[in-house]
Design a protein around this nucleic acid. Sequence first.
RNA 1: GGCCACGUGGCGGAAUGGUUACGCAGAGGAUUGCAAAUCCUUUUAUUCCAGUUCGAUUCUGGACGUGGCCUCCA
Length: 450
Amino acid sequence: MNNLHLTNSLTNKKEIFNPINKDNVTLYACGPTVYDNPHVGNARALVVFDVLFRILIELYGEKKVSYVRNITDIDDKIIEASKIKKISISDLTKSVTEKFHKDCKVLFCLNPTKEPKATDHVAGMINTTNKLIEKNAAYEKEGHVFFAVASFKKYGKLSNKNPDDLKAGARVEVSKLKKDPLDFVLWKPSDKNDPGWDSPWGRGRPGWHLECSVMSEKYLGKNFDIHGGGLDLIFPHHENEIAQSCVYNGTDKFANYWVHNGFVTMNKEKMSKSLGNITTIEDATKKYTGQVVRLSLLSAQYKQPLDWNNELLTEQSKTLDKWYSMYSSEVSEKTPNCFNDLLDDMNTPLYISKLHELFQESQKGNKDKKKEFNKACRLIGLFNESAEKRAEYKKSKVKISKDNILSKIKDREEAKKAGNYKLADQIRDDLNEEGIDIKDEKGKTIWNYK
RNA sequence: GGCCACGUGGCGGAAUGGUUACGCAGAGGAUUGCAAAUCCUUUUAUUCCAGUUCGAUUCUGGACGUGGCCUCCA
C-alpha cells in the first residue's frame, strides 16, 4: 500500500486519499472549547490528527500541508463556567488556552499551520448568516437566526440519520421560535451581561457550528481535503457544518474526507465531562511522561475505543524505557518500510509492532536498523526528547540525592567485595525503594533512575 | 424506538477465505554470588447458531452481549 487510505465517515468505507491539490493539502480538525482543562479524551483527537498531519508532511512535504485547528472561545459553556468560577470570560479563555497549549507541547504535537479563534471571526459569521438569509436558507425570529434544515436535501448523510427519524425521536424541548424542530441556531441574542456583538439582528453571539464553516473556508477554501474530529461531533456539529457550508457555497462538496476518532473510555464507558470520569492531560502527563501518554493513545487504531487504565500506561511506560536504550541522534533519512502501515488508515498498533521488531534488530547491533528505528519513532512523535532529558525528568521524581546514591553504591560494592551479600542486597533493595535501578554488568554497577 | 460500531489467548491489540502478528504477563533455559537487564525456547484465542465454500475467526443471515450517537461533548 503506497497510497494513504482513510476511512471516510461520509461513505463509511476505506478510501484512497487523493488531495485536491498536491501542493497544498488541507486538513481541518475541531479544536477545544476553552472552558475547562483538557482531558485525555481531548488528547486522543489531538494526537490522532497530529499523526495524520505528520503522515501528510512525510508524503507531501512540510510546506505543502495546511493544518488548521480552531479554538472555540465563545460558547454558552464558557459563559456558564466563568459565572461559576467568578472570573471574566477573557481570563478564563486565556488561561485554558494556555493550559491547552502546554498540554499540546507535553504531548509533542506539532503546531498547526493556523490556529484561529472564533471571536476573531465574528464578522465573517455575521456575513455568512446574512448570505444564508438572502438564500432563504435561514430566517430571523426575535433576535435569533435559524438555519432551515429543509433547505439542504442531503441533511443526515454524514451521520446516517434521516430527518424524519430525528423528529420522531426528539428528546429535547424544541424552541417555539423554530419553524422545524431540526433547525439550528446561527445567531442568538445575548443578555446585557453576556458577551455579544452588534449585528443586523441585535446584540448577540454566534451559534456553535458556524465558526468551523467560516474559518475552514477562510483558511482552506470552500472545498478542502480532510475534516477531522471526535466521533461525538458527527451529529449534530459536523452535519450542521456541512449543511450551512454547502448551502452558503452553493455546492454539495465541503470536506472530501471526514475522519473521526473513537472514544477514550474508563471501565468501558466514554470519558466525558458530563459523566465526570475524566483524567486531565495535565494529571496524566505528570504521573507518566507525555510520550507514555502519546504511545498509549496510539496503542489502538484511532477508530477503536481505548480504555484508559494503569495497566495500559505502565505497559507503555516499560516499552518506552526499553526503547530508549536504543535512542540515537543518528536518524535515517529514508522513510521506513513500516510507514506503509500508517498509510493503511493509520494502523498505529501494527506500526508499533514493527517498532518492536526494529528495536530488537538494533539491539543486536544492526546500525542501519537502529537509524531506521529512530526515524520510525520520530515519525509518530516519539523520541522527541533525548535520553538525557528523559533521565532528567525521571530524576525529578526521585528524592534521594546523587551523592547519596553514589555513596550507597560504594558501600554496596565494598560489601560485595567482603562477601557480605546480605548487606549488598539490602542496599540494593533500599535504593530500589527510592526509585533507583541497580544492575551489575561485567563487574560494574550500572544505575538508573526508574 | 431509530441508526452505528464492536465481540480474537490471562490482559492489551493487529491481521487474514487455508500458513508465527506484536506487546505485557506466565513457564523453561543461558547469564548472575543472588538479582536486574538482555538473549534463546515455549503454553494459551477467534461469543453462539445456521448458511456459502474443498476449507471461515475472516463472507452472508440470525441470536446473545457490550459500547456509542439521536442533547453539550474529542
